[in-house]
Amino acid sequence: MENMEVLKNRITYGDVRAVSKLITMLEAQDPFGNAVVKSLDSLPSQASIIGITGYPGAGKSTLIDQLTTCYRAEGKKVGILAVDTSSPRTGGAILGDRIRMQSHWSDEHVYIRSMATRGHHGGLAKATGDAIQVLEAAGYDVILVETVGVGQEEGQIIDLAQTVVVVVAPGLGDDIQAMKAGLLEIAHLVVVNKADRSDADATVHALRNWVSHVIPTIALNGEGIHAVIDAIDAHQRKIVEQHTYRS
């Protein structure tokens, strides 16, 4: 199919219009789109896929904006998928994560796409996995996936991302108990954002009883972001080593 080849080529050249359209097709479960993404399968990719999850309003989007600044400084192309919930009643959604990611709007090497869950559970949209593949094929070096603000529900993000960052705000208290069996289980690292708040230290200490990597940040001004990047990098290296070791 000639069309398919053309689209595939445009994706691999990183054509933004093509990337956007293909993601739309995948969201619509369009057979042509599915076929294109299958054919992308064979292409090699080195992309780091990082999941950003955590409670609503913890600062996930703000943190992603800051992480993007750092990755761009390293010359990496950044693709962002921001997932938010669709109303179960009407199917509609207001997707507002990008409001917090406006530092990079004029940077052609940053792509941001908002996705609604469209009834899918687990904090992601059905097409998120495929969208990640499209971004990999389009040459994005880092792919950041923001899940919906999850609470009790265990995140599916662990199946798609290599590194999962759980973002929380100070003042968790008893919630830590509840998190142990859910969010903390999937976390490779925990970010305690809004460290400008007075109760941040207590939360950091409490969490350190359960997870080894706990990093305080102030996403609003970028404090602590480099430590997050370092921890993500360290985890990514560990995966690569394990992978090499196994093969």
Partner: peptide, 26 residues
Amino acid sequence: RDAGMEVIYTGLHQTPEQVVNTAIQE
């Protein structure tokens, strides 16, 4: 949203360039 649409809300003070870039990415 209540009519079942997906609304990408960009917030305030957008330039025409920002709006068009966003429209294409989304």
